[in-house]
Simulated assay, not measured.
Amino acid sequence: MEEGEEVKLLGAWMSPFVNRVKWVLKLKGIRYEYLEQDLVNKSPLLLTSNPVYKRVPVLIHNGKPISESLFIIEYLDDTWKNNPILPQDPYQRAKARFWANFIEEKFSQVMRKVLSLEGEKQKKEVENANEALEILEGELKGKKFFGGDQTIGLVDIVLGVLPTWIGVIEEVACVKVFDPIKYPSLAKWMEDFLELPVIKESLPDKDKLLAYVHKIRIYMLTLAATK
């Protein structure tokens, strides 16, 4: 960290959105202080740093808080120019933002619904997830990473929820979403992505994550049953 630079990350070990920020911090070699947050009993620092959503991740740079993982990543990329995460070309930059937003809306949010539903409603969301995966398979075809053959970029980092969470959600929700035979390019991408040292070093413990996601599913189903 440069002299006078103070970087803190408020996070929670299980959050894929916090992981995104950790990956970028490591890719750029930014030294930071990590502050694990209790999301049940939220700290005054979290509540004052993100008073609107009251959730992680929050990056605090020299006392100034930035929330929401995509905005944090762009901020880090604009502030620390080494190892760029977004393309420099304006057109390619806009495309990367488009695909990042597509993944958020059409896959990440859908997988949360898969976890919280049962029966026909869950089946419909699995179909929606597969529609998104089919589109992403076509976009990735012929490339090692979405960011290119040599390095990962914004789209790879945002889609990092796929290899790190998909198996856990499938096991807990008793569904099959990802078929490596149907999506060979994505399957190879997942292997290559997980072999990157910066990713491998930051993965949550699977057993611990399984236990956590089980609790979340029970809570979601119980909440839905009371409505």
Score class of each variant (00 low, 15 high):
E2H: 10
G4M: 02
K8L: 08
L9G: 05
A12E: 09
M14C: 14
S15L: 01
S15E: 02
P16A: 07
P16N: 05
V18M: 03
V18T: 10
N19D: 05
K22W: 09
K26Q: 11
R31E: 14
Y32P: 00
E33V: 15
E33H: 12
L35R: 13
V40N: 10
N41P: 03
P44K: 02
L45S: 07
L47P: 00
N50K: 00
K54R: 09
V56L: 06
P65N: 09
S67R: 00
E68I: 01
S69D: 06
S69Q: 09
E74N: 15
D77H: 02
D77G: 04
D77S: 08
W80N: 02
N83G: 03
P87H: 08
Q88H: 13
Y91L: 13
R93M: 01
R97D: 03
W99E: 07
F102N: 02
E104K: 11
R112I: 10
K113L: 15
E118H: 08
K123E: 15
E125D: 08
V126C: 12
N128R: 13
A129R: 04
A129F: 04
E131A: 12
G147F: 00
Q150T: 14
I157T: 04
V158F: 04
P163K: 04
P163L: 00
T164E: 05
G167T: 02
V168F: 02
E170A: 03
V175Y: 06
V175H: 09
F178Y: 00
K188I: 14
M190A: 15
F193S: 06
E195H: 12
K208Q: 14
L210C: 08
V213P: 01
K215S: 15
K215E: 12
I216E: 11
I218M: 13
Y219M: 10
T222V: 07
T222P: 04
L223Y: 11
L223N: 11
T226R: 11
T226I: 09
K227I: 09
